[in-house]
């Protein structure tokens, strides 16, 4: 019985997402209105990710290329992890006020550390011999960075982008606190939507995060140079892969 009731609530929530309902005040919630919330959710997330990538990837590539600033690149992601996303949004609201720009800025700050750290680690783990060979062939430093180090670092860079994107999608849920009506509107201003609307928003946000993870995971596999893919096809694959992840994850 309770299982059925439990399934029922989810069924209602799914129905809410696709069809919506009219509140007692006569406003439409769910359905097409949910689509608008989703578009806003994706918009704020994408803008924040584009800005974060534009800042963090070149900086990470450059620091990795000159092999300097490991303290900055590594400790930034540790500090970033310790600052709660809610606190970050709240700081922006209290000090800069609400609005799309401020929320985007907060999300950019949240997204930078994993991308920067992974870009840096990705470049520094390119074999010295590879870089020396490129230099011996007469490539300029800029060409080495863009033609040798960047492609070899791409899988890790995409790993960082994936981590940040999922985190940004999750955090955009609390953006209505700062005046941007994302899917979190149904969670934070629950009186307008009811319990079903809130559950519907939770399902939508979860689905959005999983789809982002899967899409970027596929992109990560697609951009992995064939050389690395061949290398990782060896029996020692699991060990090198997990060590690599473990290294980026170590505080």
């Amino acid at each position: 019985m309770s299982t059925l009731a439990f399934l029922g609530e989810f069924g209602e929530a799914i129905q809410f997402i696709f069809e919506g309902e009219t509140t007692r005040e006569g406003t439409q919630v769910g359905g097409s209105q949910f689509l608008e919330l989703t578009v806003e959710h994706i918009k704020v997330s994408v803008v924040a990710m584009v800005v974060a990538c534009a800042l963090a990837i070149p900086l990470g590539l450059w620091l990795g290329h000159i092999r300097r600033g490991s303290f900055l690149a590594i400790s930034l992601s540790n500090v970033g992890r310790a600052v709660p996303s809610l606190a970050l949004i709240a700081f922006f609201v209290a000090y800069l006020g609400v609005g799309f720009t401020n929320v985007t800025l907060a999300l950019v700050l949240l997204a930078i550390p994993p991308i920067l750290t992974n870009a840096y680690v990705g470049v520094t783990q390119v074999h010295r011999e590879t870089v020396d060979a490129a230099r011996g062939m007469g490539m300029t430093e800029a060409r080495i960075a863009l033609r040798v180090e960047l492609p070899l670092a791409l899988p890790l860079i995409f790993g960082g982008i994936k981590t940040s994107a999922v985190n940004v999608i999750a955090t955009a849920t609390i953006a209505p606190l700062a005046g941007v009506t994302t899917l979190g509107d149904a969670i934070i201003n629950v009186s307008g939507y009811g319990d079903v609307g809130r559950l519907a928003a939770a399902i939508s946000v979860a689905a959005l995060a999983v789809m982002t993870e899967l899409t970027l995971g596929a992109a990560q596999r697609a951009v992995t140079p064939r050389g690395i893919r061949l290398e990782s096809g060896r029996p020692s694959r699991r060990r090198t892969l997990s060590t690599r992840i473990g290294r980026t994850a170590s505080p």
Partner: peptide, 8 residues
């Protein structure tokens, strides 16, 4: 997202 899981 944990916030979604809380409500799920």
């Amino acid at each position: 997202p944990s916030i979604a899981v809380f409500f799920l």
